[in-house]
Amino acid sequence: MTEILQTRIPHNPLEPKRLPGIAPLALADWLTPDDAFAGQMAERERLLDSTRDRVLMMDESGRAAAEELLEQVLAQLYPDAEEEVTRPDGVKVRIDRSDPLGSLGRITQQDFCILEKPEGSEEHILTGAVLCFPASWTLAEKFMRPLTAIHVPVDSYDANIAARVQRLFDGVQLGRPLWRFNALWYHDAALHQPRSAAAPRQQPPSGEAGYLRSEKQTILRLPRTGAVIFGIHTFVLRRADVLEQWGDHAESDQTLHTV
């Protein structure tokens, strides 16, 4: 399990923030590998090989955005790539442009959700995703659903927060991505933790969980299709490593930024 865990995290996951906690992000910092890259990529490949139908879904309405996303990621991370890339861990991956989300899942540490706002719709809809590392939710339950339904059953995602998030998705500008983080204590360090909305996870009692899971969540608009990309970079650290880096904030166990 050690190889999938980070030992450091670039943001303080114990810092309380008001929802939705959005901040600007430099485009260069949108996709950043870390010290767990090799181990997490091996796990992504295992999941895509063994459970592809559960970690990757795409409606044909989302294909153009998925193709555009692949090209943007390649341009940023592998600008000289044509048919093959060499990842930071030295693994060579063939790019299959007919399978854009599958290719993305094997070349980046991030998961990606494609959200598009059809004409006449009041909300963005999840038209495609590669989601290898769900944190207590399942892609099948959220696929082709609007933002409000995607966030069920998050208690703090009330009508006010829903309206603010929709405005964020409507207003995110080209070349000016946004980001936020969440943080939750877990007993289990596994990256792939799907869970039905009908069986919500019980948070461990304060001070008892051995791992902190924090997602760096990014929001980026694609220039051609106008789709909004929700990126998820998953950090899982041992409790001791978090406290060594950021200090003992045990009082924050039950007040972490969780949406």
Rank of each mutant, 00 (worst) to 15 (best):
T2I: 09
E3K: 12
I4H: 11
I4W: 04
I9G: 09
P10G: 01
H11G: 03
H11C: 04
E15A: 15
I22Y: 12
L25Y: 08
A26P: 05
P33H: 12
D34G: 14
A36Q: 11
A36K: 10
A38N: 05
Q40M: 12
M41R: 12
A42K: 14
R46A: 13
L47K: 06
L47Y: 08
L48K: 03
R52E: 11
R54D: 13
M57S: 06
M58D: 07
S61W: 00
S61G: 15
R63V: 09
A64F: 00
E67L: 02
V73M: 04
L74H: 06
Q76W: 01
L77K: 08
Y78F: 15
E83I: 08
E84S: 05
E84K: 09
V85D: 06
D89G: 08
G90W: 02
G90Q: 04
V91D: 04
R94G: 04
I95A: 04
D96Y: 02
D96H: 11
R97A: 03
R97L: 01
P100V: 07
L101H: 10
S103L: 06
F112D: 02
L115Y: 08
G120C: 05
I125Q: 05
L126C: 12
A129Q: 11
V130S: 05
P134T: 03
W137Q: 08
L139V: 07
M144V: 06
M144F: 05
L147G: 05
L147E: 00
L147P: 10
A149V: 04
H151I: 00
V152K: 14
V154G: 04
D155M: 11
D155I: 03
Y157M: 13
Y157C: 12
Y157Q: 08
D158R: 00
I161H: 14
V165H: 03
F169A: 03
F169Q: 11
D170K: 09
Q173E: 15
R176V: 02
P177G: 09
P177N: 06
F181W: 14
N182A: 04
A183G: 15
H187M: 07
A190M: 08
A190V: 05
A190R: 15
L191D: 03
R195D: 01
S196N: 04
S196W: 06
S196D: 02
A198R: 14
A198T: 02
P200S: 09
P204N: 07
S206C: 10
A209L: 06
Y211V: 10
I219D: 01
R221W: 09
G226P: 03
A227H: 12
G231Y: 09
G231S: 11
G231M: 12
L237H: 02
L237I: 01
R238C: 06
R238M: 06
R239G: 11
D241A: 15
V242Q: 02
L243N: 06
E244H: 11
H249G: 14
E251K: 13
D253K: 03
T255P: 00
L256D: 10
V259E: 04
V259L: 14
